[in-house]
Write a protein that binds this DNA or RNA. Structure first.
Lengths: 212, 212
DNA sequence: ATATTGTTTAACAAATAAGTCAAACTAAAA
DNA sequence: TTTTAGTTTGACTTATTTGTTAAACAATAT
């Protein structure tokens, strides 16, 4: 082993964080024991305490890192200056890909913010994300794009819901609508990347028709 | 006290189940201790064991009862023979009202089925809900109604997502889009009862336009 | 009245997991 | 080489929580 202490430290810390994220997401904060995490990381349990004093501190660190994965796509759809239809497609694509790699993320995050709602404001600040400003910009850009008759907050809630639900509700939905065929469900998830923007596009067309 | 033992029993059991549902939903299966539940029900902790042997058995009973609240609206939109637009409105209305009264339900259910995906098939059977049949009926009815170009599974996933997301993601979304104004968010939730069917209606219009 | 069944409680035992501590180990610095 | 700082580990303590047991209590039936 030709590691110096510093690289050893960094490596161990990274391994702990990766293992923690994985185990916390799969088992939940309370379902995951420090031993589980240590095993996943291939280290001694006490080492977790050495690096992160206690379970809460470890969890907080992990939560922020995991939560951060939700931000980039959100920022991009709210601030990019491309045509709306394209932003929409990019957003759905980016979010879907992220969820495909982190299927347990939404349940994990929503569970935690449900138990601990005050955490959100803090975490968002920590991530350097300014909700008020960003959302205002989104709103005004939408108006400029001539979608002023569709409340951006409803639009955004619908969009997020449509994207996220199939991941959150997978076990349920795969059972009732796909007879538990996992492969078919994967294909379904992929199709949604096109279906969701398409549905919204049709709604825009419908709206413009009704306007006249 | 003029209760006989039988009515006492029923009352106690009902109180336990109500308290359990509340505490489990708010704190999660692992976050809720038997003591928490006993306190909420105003009884001795050992009594819980007397009525439901152990925590797992109690939880299973509660989960089935809570999960059952998801079924009726789902069945009605899939089997009713009213015009589709009306079914849609009724579904959104029914689901929204149920969620308003059970705001913690979706996170609770999704967390549990995420940890325990095999439970779903069993629970659905327990509830006398036959996914395959019901969904097939939904599909064919949709086709008859002339919406054959919109995959019913995508439609249903979108619908559920749009309805449920604002409840699951409330702490997050209320913060970023409503500056934490709870009253405004309640109004928003109410608006969605109309917004969601409206969006889908517009999409149908858009689809019919594009068809030509 | 008392015996029996069912209900409720307090006290105890066992298991699990978090967190602490001191000792062992490693690698670079003096 | 030895010292020093940093890293890793095993053993221990403590706290929490589940589940059990036996006894007390209540209400009805004999």
């Amino acid at each position: 082993m030709n590691d110096n202490k510093q690289s050893r430290e960094i490596d161990t810390e990274r391994r702990i964080l990766e293992a923690s994220a994985k185990v916390f997401m799969m088992k939940g904060k309370l379902g995951a024991s420090m031993q589980d995490i240590a095993d996943e990381a291939g280290i001694n349990r006490t080492l977790l305490h050495y690096y992160f004093r206690n379970k809460d501190k470890l969890f907080d660190t992990v939560f922020e890192k995991v939560f951060a994965r939700l931000i980039p796509a959100m920022v991009s759809i709210m601030t990019s200056d491309q045509p709306f239809q394209e932003r929409l497609e990019q957003f759905v694509e980016a979010y879907s890909d992220m969820l495909l790699e982190n299927p347990y993320l939404p349940v994990f995050v929503f569970q935690e913010i449900s138990l601990n709602p005050h955490r959100i404001a803090e975490t968002l600040k920590e991530q350097g994300f300014s909700p008020k400003k960003t959302f205002k910009k989104f709103r005004s850009e939408l108006e400029e794009a001539g979608m002023d008759d569709m409340d951006p907050r409803h639009l955004f809630a619908s969009l997020l819901g449509m994207v996220i639900f199939p991941y959150i509700g997978r076990p349920l939905f795969q059972t009732i609508a796909f007879q538990d065929d996992a492969k078919a469900y994967d294909a379904f998830l992929d199709e949604r990347k096109k279906q969701i923007p398409q549905l919204l596009k049709l709604a825009f067309i419908g709206a413009s028709v009704q306007k006249q």
